[in-house]
Design a protein around this nucleic acid. Sequence first.
DNA 1: TCGCTTGCTGAGTAAATGCTCACAAAACGG
DNA 2: CCGTTTTGTGAGCATTTACTCAGCAAGCGA
Lengths: 318, 318
Amino acid sequence: MSRNEPEPTLNDDAARAGWLYYVGGLTQDQIATEIGVSRQRAQRLVSRAMAEGLIHVRLNHPIGACLDLEAELTARFGLMRCRVVPGLGPGSDGVRATAPAAAAELERFLRMPEPLVIALGTGRAMRGMVDAVTPMDADQHRLVSLIGNIAPDGSASFFDVVMRIADKVRAPHYPMPVPVISPTPAENAAFHALGPVKKVVDLARAADVIFVGVGQMSNDAPLLKDGFVTRLELDEMQEAGAVGEVAGWVFDSRGIYLDVGTNIRTGGVRVAPGLDRPSIGIAAGASKVPAIAGALRARIINGLVTDEPTARALLNRL
Amino acid sequence: MSRNEPEPTLNDDAARAGWLYYVGGLTQDQIATEIGVSRQRAQRLVSRAMAEGLIHVRLNHPIGACLDLEAELTARFGLMRCRVVPGLGPGSDGVRATAPAAAAELERFLRMPEPLVIALGTGRAMRGMVDAVTPMDADQHRLVSLIGNIAPDGSASFFDVVMRIADKVRAPHYPMPVPVISPTPAENAAFHALGPVKKVVDLARAADVIFVGVGQMSNDAPLLKDGFVTRLELDEMQEAGAVGEVAGWVFDSRGIYLDVGTNIRTGGVRVAPGLDRPSIGIAAGASKVPAIAGALRARIINGLVTDEPTARALLNRL
DNA sequence: TCGCTTGCTGAGTAAATGCTCACAAAACGG
DNA sequence: CCGTTTTGTGAGCATTTACTCAGCAAGCGA
């Protein structure tokens, strides 16, 4: 029942070392003695436990300033859910900060006993969230991807988000078997005419709750960096007013989806504005502020997990 | 909506510092700069965040050895639930190790949507568990104490367990308004004849799930240390074969409740052996092994949260 | 008002941590 | 079977952390 590995250990040791260090408060020297290894092996085990995410750290105190920001954002944009976490200082990235809170938000839904259809986007924020989720049994739910799983270069590194989370919580999952962005509108249409694709699309459209990242369309656009759009396409869309993107679908500063550039060839499901079901965006970072503001304004997302500086920036731009 | 304190800060700062340190991985120097305090103030804030339980650390990896022990214990004693956590080394106490796992176990029930009656004992293990619980809304449940809340010396320090947890999860709670142990059987009976007491007793008897610590009756018995029984009473009960105690009720090595000593004057509700509902013991430590074994044998508890060395010791005594 | 206690602060320092490096064992490829 | 690459190990050392201690300010009783 327990394991395949006979008895010894793998990064079981790492978990144990991390436990002794963070929960037990032992020194690494004591841990070394305890497990019977050298001091610096203990140090490696401890840092490994952290790196591998074997140890989860969560904040358990409502910091006043963050609560205030949550309340303001909720009021300002009529949100269904809002979490603001303290920022991690100037240099640090927003994913790290938001991941634990986003995971907690996702877990809320996973723990619900009635079966849900949960739709997910991709991107770094999603990936961070998934990594921070605690494994659990949630096979009553179905997890569906909003975005195609066929990349231009064939790499699948970005599409294991849904697979990973499905694996972690033992839920069935439905990838979207279309290209993220097809070369031509016709080819995209051809894919979406296929029966199996239609099924997944229908499922995603009917999702009870949606989790997505929000991408900026400035020159550091994730779509560009990951090779989904070319520099020329980006220029064209910027010209047309593009400021952000959700699940690959590009919109302007009011959150209105554009009809130019890759938008006419994007596969998968577009998140409809003004849904009555939760559509939660996970996003933080100064460069994402206009994008997030647009998505919130049009109610492409009606829930938000972000960090403190981003929250302030959102509120400061009347 | 948010806080009473106007805007500044209290140990909000501690939470923030802890967040930056544990989640953000900043050095204490950077944190000092970030919040604008001296380096050693930052260090104090960080350690305070830990001490106050503002930061929760949980292990997220099934350590093979512990899983095996869980399986063995479950089979051996026919348990409904079993968690074994790695020990924290020789010197360290069991409460520290078991508290996070016990809290997770309790939270499982708290998250259930249907209203439950949850009965709780007292003691250090319970206290540790409660401190480790994440605040949440669980007002569908009722929390009831198994044990009287009138101490011999009037101190109430041990009885705030139910109150604390009720406060944390915003659930109604029902303390047991009787002495833990009355001077005479008659006085105890008099208390229990009172209408309000009967109500609470009935509620506790009908509990859907029970959480208790397990006390040893050796010379380091918690009942003795906390002044609930005298040295003479302890001697008398040891003579009669007492090895352990659950919610103040003393039993022998087979888990059979005794009819001597304080047992004839103990207030509150005795956990009935062989319940079909979960009755979960939280206990770890070498000196508790005979007590735990007795409670398990008679099925006073049918669930267990303990640590690795205790689990081994339990299995080694055929 | 004065002296006392209490609690917090910062400086200095011992301890603990994590990083780099050179080396060895194991895995891999020919 | 041998050379090459990869992975892991321990030692030394720079950095970071935690502890102790003396001083200082606020609160309190006289």
